[in-house]
Design a binder for these strands. Sequence first.
DNA 1: GTTACCTGTATACCCTATAATACATTTCGC
DNA 2: GCGAAATGTATTATAGGGTATACAGGTAAC
Lengths: 290, 290
Amino acid sequence: MADAVEPLKARRIYLLLRERILNGDLEPGSRLPGELSIAAGYGISRVTVRRALDTLASDGLIDRRPGSGTFVREGNSVQPIVADLSNVLSHLVEMGRRTGVRLLSFAYVNPPESVAASLGLEPGERTQRSIRVRLIDGAPFSYLVTHVPERIGVTYSEADLASTPLLGLLERSGVVVEEASQSIGATLAGPDVADALGLEIGSPLLSLTRVVWDPSGQGVEHLHALYRPDRYSFHMDLVRTGAVGARRWNPVAKPATAGPEPHKRIIKGPESPKPKSRPVRVSNQRRTST
Amino acid sequence: MADAVEPLKARRIYLLLRERILNGDLEPGSRLPGELSIAAGYGISRVTVRRALDTLASDGLIDRRPGSGTFVREGNSVQPIVADLSNVLSHLVEMGRRTGVRLLSFAYVNPPESVAASLGLEPGERTQRSIRVRLIDGAPFSYLVTHVPERIGVTYSEADLASTPLLGLLERSGVVVEEASQSIGATLAGPDVADALGLEIGSPLLSLTRVVWDPSGQGVEHLHALYRPDRYSFHMDLVRTGAVGARRWNPVAKPATAGPEPHKRIIKGPESPKPKSRPVRVSNQRRTST
DNA sequence: GTTACCTGTATACCCTATAATACATTTCGC
DNA sequence: GCGAAATGTATTATAGGGTATACAGGTAAC
């Protein structure tokens, strides 16, 4: 859609503004600051701002009304998939969405030191590394790099991996999966990831690193996942616990049973469209999310 | 440190490479691909790659050895603050780190529609909006925008906010805080945020949106937080629960009691340096994190 | 030694993205 | 109706970012 090549300064502004429009930070229907104000704000010339706006307009994200201003077009904020922090995707299937996996790479390698350390491998021990891309309704939303100790990896085939979730394969192989530890951050897309996820280099990404252990404390999987934040985000409900003076949040433990009931209360913020109805309390609904 | 102005394409490569070095994706001591390979990989010329490498070298992140190659200098990956998902910072204080807050803005406003909707406000109801920046050891790491319904906001002053955590003020005012819902995503830094956090425009950010309700289901706080991922990340421990065929992850509920014991097991991934020792199982230690 | 590959260095060119400026036209509030 | 402010349009000029190319010098593997 957008022109093949484009000025860089203009493109940066374009990307920034697009971000703010898509995640609802700039509210649909509202007016942007004037081109001159934007130019001043970013310290660039009006011509450059215009180029960015041109692209936005050709994307259908804004309406430009001469004499009046530039407006955010309605109905554009895209609702990302909301993942429970347990990061299980089966509810997507329940919701009738078509998911898919593309296996980009499958090999046995000498793992990076950081991976070896977190899995607790012996020096020189090799891992099976797979790179996969997950799709929802044909659109890629995550880029997954997993490392599994070689001796475990050999219990399933490349074809298995292309069709079955990794944890399922591990458990099928008799590995007992019990504990994991994960951390969430953010990064920029490099050329390979950008390509695989259909993004521009330099787009923001949610990053998740998870290490899974069996009951003996032996690492069985190291996952490094990158998510398109416009298509995927993490969600969790919290309750306030603890005594006065030491109060804190704790996650709400969710029942393992799953119902077909869809998410009803989605967090709103600068990052999602607004529901009209008043939010319902959590306890009044069963959250689905398995 | 870096030159004031810099080519844009070169700068993008610089930022990308810096990311990968700082979070350990490019391992300390390892050799980068040759300048020509990099150039080919990103589809740019060698001269441009060189400019990026020049900046990295002047940052002290790489060593360039003529005839041999370019190497990632050791000891550069910065450990981000690891926040528990309960997102409480008091453990930082326990660890003897100096934290601070800068209040950038304090005003009563007509909230964005998305905020009004998620708080369940009446049409036209105003909110108190504050913008704060949190510092650790003098370095900014988070940018917080909060909205509180006006009638609650008036129970504390601007000075209160500059010195006391918002939730504390709310509870002091008799508001009962019980439930919250939050989602985590990623974005790019705009000019204002970049400025406040000491970043470049276009840097990646962790984004957190949280809505807090009182027991009646009335929203009392809407928080939109942006974190520098190099200084802050979320961490959580999970256990595998549920019957076969419906197994899933659940967060480990942490005790409300806090001990001075520091984090011992940090997730390793492309995003943190490597410990030498084999990881210890979670259950063997008390995690601190209140 | 020889070869291959790497970084260091220099030059020259292109050309286009950006800025600066001016003016026309539309809309909206007063 | 008038004026302020917005977008649309056009022109020009320049800086400098990016490329291409060539060669020198160092290092390491064989």
